[in-house]
């Protein structure tokens, strides 16, 4: 409530300031033109012996330029401020979401520990409770890791571990791991097409990409998740199309979902968990691989398809890909030395 009020006042102040600048500009022009007329028409008649220069054009034009620059600067300042306010808002949401994501598994772990401490629990139940605690502690670990990794990614403290792989072979392996991790029945995931080319990827980072996409497909499917993975390639690039039959996405949100802290809130969404970091992380990883990611969806309840395009080794982005491999080799040497 307070934030929307302060935004209203900022907009009001901005409009007022712009009117003031324009008013001043108008007055200035009026002053110049009227003075010029007086000098030209009356000045000559009244005192022809005095040589008076008409008002200085340089000062006049210079003044206008200065005022216009202030108005433009003011506009940029205002635009920046609103972006900052939006970011602060998103950040507040992020804190609320992270709090929820941290506290929920923590409450669950605490509940099971107190249950085991205060009650006599049958051995099979005990085993079940320990598994639940493991699940929750893994969830906590993942969340903490993701926050730390993203922060490292942003500070360019990336640990390079790029190697050359056969594209469809590595993707097949990684998606299998995601399926196992999220306990999806293997029949729910279909892989079509092939990308018979070499690529340079960081296996662990690409696993994070597929894990995040799989997690999203599960979270945003009202029924049992169904994933189809389509691989293809052209002369320079190879593509992964990761599609689900979930609740879909409105066109206005296609770009938004990759923004940091951004979460789409809607009553149709069957899951409220998340921090708004997952797809931002995915986009950053793909960017580091020299590729790009986009999303397509026909709309609500029409499913979602993420399209990832990556360079083929020694065909596209040669210099950049080589630098990734060089950096990896350098890191490995350093590790061996230590």
């Amino acid at each position: 409530m307070k934030k929307s009020h302060s935004l209203f006042y900022i907009i009001l102040a901005f409009i007022f300031a712009q009117i003031a600048w324009m008013g001043l500009l108008g007055l200035w022009i009026y002053w110049y033109v009227s003075n010029n007329i007086i000098f030209e028409q009356v000045g000559d008649k009244l005192s022809p012996q005095i040589m008076i220069d008409s008002p200085n054009v340089f000062v006049f034009v210079g003044g206008i330029i200065l005022i216009a620059s202030i108005a433009v600067a003011f506009f940029f300042f205002f635009r920046n401020l609103t972006v900052q306010m939006k970011l602060t808002n998103l950040y507040d949401n992020f804190i609320a979401n992270v709090t929820h994501e941290l506290k929920s598994p923590l409450s669950s772990i605490q509940l099971y520990l107190e249950t085991l401490e205060t009650k006599e629990v049958l051995p099979e139940k005990r085993k079940e409770f320990l598994e639940m605690m493991m699940r929750d502690s893994n969830r906590l670990k993942k969340l903490i890791d993701s926050i730390l990794e993203i922060s490292r990614l942003e500070q360019k403290g990336i640990s390079y571990n790029y190697h050359i792989y056969q594209a469809d072979e590595i993707i097949g392996r990684l998606i299998k791991e995601s399926i196992e991790q999220f306990r999806i029945p293997p029949s729910a995931v279909k892989i079509e097409g092939r990308a018979m080319c070499a690529c340079v990827i960081d296996k662990d980072a690409m696993q994070i990409v597929l894990d995040n996409l799989t997690d999203n497909a599960i979270k945003y499917s009202a029924k049992q998740v169904e994933i189809s993975l389509k691989l293809s390639s052209n002369q320079k690039r190879w593509m992964i199309e990761f599609a689900d039959r979930g609740i879909g996405l409105e066109p206005k949100n296609h770009k938004k979902i990759f923004h940091k802290f951004q979460r789409i809130t809607s009553k149709n969404i069957p899951n409220v968990k998340g921090t708004g970091l997952g797809l931002y992380w995915v986009k950053e990883i793909i960017k580091l691989h020299g590729g790009k990611i986009s999303v397509q969806s026909e709309g609500i309840n029409q499913g979602t398809c993420f399209k990832i395009e990556l360079p083929i080794y020694q065909t596209s982005k040669k210099y950049y890909i080589k630098s990734l491999l060089r950096q990896t080799a350098k890191n490995q040497k350093l590790l061996e030395k230590n």
């Binding site: 929920s104 669950s108 509940l111 099971y112 639940m132």
Partner: peptide, 26 residues
């Protein structure tokens, strides 16, 4: 409660106290 693990733990404890518990996920 939509958090599965927490819901199961709560349901166990409340049932153990003698309450009859129904669980709704949303």
């Amino acid at each position: 409660e939509d958090e599965e693990t927490l819901a199961i733990g709560l349901q166990y404890n409340l049932s153990d106290e003698g309450f009859i518990v129904d669980l709704a996920k949303d």
